[in-house]
Design a protein around this nucleic acid. Structure first.
Lengths: 164, 164
DNA sequence: TTGATTGCAAACGCTTTGCAACCGT
DNA sequence: ACGGTTGCAAAGCGTTTGCAATCAA
């Protein structure tokens, strides 16, 4: 059902919580206090995280591990989150709503994820897909290597050539 | 450092087993009967598989689950196999030796993997990487969607309009 | 003999699930 | 009261590991 306009929170975009509520509605599910806390915690900042990190953060708010896992699956199905990688045998999530399409450079040394966007990639993929009669719905691209920080020589260390 | 040329093993092709043995040697490990059976089974054909499938096939040959898992890790480290995707919470392997670089279209309906190769992709990725000072070592690209077979109408099923 | 390797079973880590208690409407 | 929801603990599942027995150089 459409709510009366709430200009304070609408204006341009629909908040993640609102979008989630809409999704839950179509499934005969409710936006409970716990789910609300989870959404709040997840969208507090735009960073990558895994389930266990979230579980930790929400333990303090008295939300159980089971509920966090269950809700993560809902958020993914609702299109608010997506899995972007796998690190240490854990799925890594990121926002998939109100955030532009991008992929990641994954550093094998420090594990950091660097986001990038490439115009050409989307075209390339849809071209390849249509060539195979494949109906593309999405993709996941992980580029492995070493990030610029880790590639630099360790900081605060004299290089022999400088010592003469 | 550059080794003296070994014409016998360069030029033409070294079998996977030979390459594995070479790798094992550098690690002070041996090419045992079990490992040999595993390599044979893995490279019998060029198809994608997961650990459990291999375990099944090798159970008949009296190789234990533990040894299969241990050897898969070795083969990956040796550069003979690589993980290309994850299906049903299982890592999917494919040959990474004597086979050209490619990526996959993954059907969400039947789970099939379709290989494709794109010239443009490699250039695009190295361009993006250098732009971020990232030293690319490899990548993994999975395109999700529906394969051409699954996209077609189900076979052998009457459509109501045909029945008049 | 020595050290690598194997099979077994138990352990592991992440995730899911059965179930009884518990809301919210 | 009626469903959906929660927390708990147990189960699941793929994968790893400790260990004693075994094997090969």
């Amino acid at each position: 059902m459409s709510e009366p306009l709430n200009l304070a929170s609408v204006n341009v975009s629909v908040t993640p919580e609102e979008k989630f509520q809409e999704f839950l509605g179509t499934k005969g599910m409710r936006l409970t206090h716990e789910r609300s806390l989870i959404v709040e915690e997840v969208f507090a900042d735009h960073s990558h995280f895994d389930a266990e990190e979230l579980v930790d953060r929400l333990k303090k708010r008295n939300v159980s591990r089971a509920t966090v896992y269950r809700t993560l699956n809902c958020l993914e199905e609702a299109g608010l989150l997506r899995k972007v990688a796998r690190t240490n045998d854990r799925d890594v999530y990121e926002h998939d709503y109100g955030y532009p399409q991008h992929d990641h450079l994954i550093c094998g040394k420090c594990g950091s994820l660097t986001e990038f966007h490439s115009e050409g990639l989307a075209e390339l993929l849809s071209s390849v897909s249509s060539k195979h009669g494949f109906l593309m719905e999405g993709h996941r691209l992980e580029v492995y290597g070493t990030c610029s920080s880790c590639a630099k020589p360790p900081k605060r260390q004299f290089r022999k050539l400088d010592m003469i």
